[in-house]
Computed example of a mutant assay.
Amino acid sequence: MSSDAPVTRRGLLKLGAGVAATAALAAAEPASAAVSRAEGRFELTAPATSLIWKKALYDETVLQSFTIDNAHGHIYTIQVKNGAGSDAAGHLCVTKLSLTGTVLGHMYLMGFGHGVQIGVEPSGASAYLWTETDGISDGATSRGSKLARFKFTDGQTLTTSSSALAKYSLVAGATNTTCAIDPSTNRLVMRYVDGSAFRIAAYELASVTAGAPQKLYDIAQPTGLGTFQGYAAYGNFVYLLTGNSYDLSPPPGNTYLTCLDLRTGEQVQRAHSVAGQSLDFREPEGMAVQIVSGAPRLCLGLASGVAGARKASIFYKSELV
């Protein structure tokens, strides 16, 4: 297990100050106020720490993305379902994990897409997942054309026509639709293709579920970043994960994290990541924000292992600037 950069005294002081400020804010204000005031952004050159290391998922394929249910302490991963033709058909497997990587349940999603990014919305004792759905296949892979919200139910298999789904088309004619949920602001952040270009939009989550979507921001995704592998949002910033596995880009690899300002579209920071550099295969896959005692962590996923026995690892950064 490895980190992205050496730990310095300055970095530790900044991290301590950021965590203390976040914790103090959470203690001093009602939960709703604390959530709505996510401050600062993550320092992308800060060290990365392991959350889970080389854990098996329910199916044996490569991790595609993940999300973290901060209310209940669970991780949800998504991957292409076992079996020939699943990628082209858009068949996916969701695995529910503990925060230490123990498998707690699974679901199958038939015809949904590729699973580039997912989100979770805790609700009471339940968790509702947000994914792409109504996948459109090009013969090799499938990409969603709508968003779906559904309750995680262990052992259930859903199709695109299942009554358990609530579907959303937030941008007319959009393709390659995926989403993430920012737990600090309760915003839904959607990545999509409009025409031929990728864009990223942010909505008030409650307005989407109420059927009257309130768009807050809509920015262009910069070109030339590399192979896209996932994203996450915290406050006014969205973080993009790009790169390839070691078989395409040998160590130290070409995994990069990029921070964009949702308000302006400005690229604020871009940094190379060597988190989990000792993994074999090592393909970057998915992002999420974890909240621990009021302090945020920016998490990134890594797939490893051989075909037919893939493993998932998650690392996080917690220094704010």
Rank of each mutant, 00 (worst) to 15 (best):
S36N: 10
R9Q: 10
H72F: 06
S50H: 10
P47Q: 00
L104V: 10
F66E: 07
L63V: 10
S126C: 11
L25D: 14
A48N: 02
A23S: 08
G105P: 00
G115S: 13
W130F: 15
Q64A: 12
V35G: 00
V80I: 15
H74W: 14
S65G: 14
H106P: 02
W53E: 11
I78A: 04
V62A: 14
K54Q: 15
L15Q: 09
Y58C: 02
L109P: 05
V62P: 01
A28D: 12
I68N: 10
A56H: 14
P30N: 07
A21N: 11
P122K: 00
P47R: 00
C93G: 06
G119R: 00
A21G: 13
L63Q: 07
H72Y: 09
Y76S: 08
A21T: 08
I118H: 05
A24T: 09
G101Y: 09
T95E: 07
N70P: 00
A17F: 07
K81P: 01
S86C: 06
V7S: 06
A31G: 02
S86M: 06
G18E: 03
Y76T: 09
A89R: 11
V35Q: 15
A21W: 06
R41T: 10
L44G: 09
G73V: 11
I68P: 13
A17H: 07
A125E: 09
L97M: 15
L44K: 05
G115Y: 12
L104P: 01
T77G: 11
T45P: 01
C93R: 04
E43V: 10
G90V: 03
Q79L: 13
A46I: 06
A125Y: 12
V94D: 04
V120A: 03
A33Y: 09
A33L: 14
Y58M: 03
I52P: 01
L12P: 00
A34K: 13
R9E: 11
G124D: 05
H91P: 02
G83C: 05
A23C: 06
D87T: 08
A26E: 14
L92Y: 05
L13Q: 12
Y58W: 14
L51F: 14
L97N: 12
A127K: 04
T67N: 13
T100Y: 06
S123E: 15
T22D: 08
A27S: 14
R10V: 08
G101H: 04
A34I: 09
S32R: 13
C93T: 15
A48H: 01
S123H: 01
F112D: 14
Y128C: 03
G111F: 01
A89Q: 05
A84G: 07
G11K: 00
L104I: 10
T49K: 13
Q117H: 12
D69P: 04
V94R: 01
I75Q: 12
L15E: 12
Q64S: 13
A125T: 15
A17Q: 09
P30V: 00
A127R: 03
E29V: 12
S86L: 01
G40L: 11
V19A: 11
L129Y: 07
G18L: 06
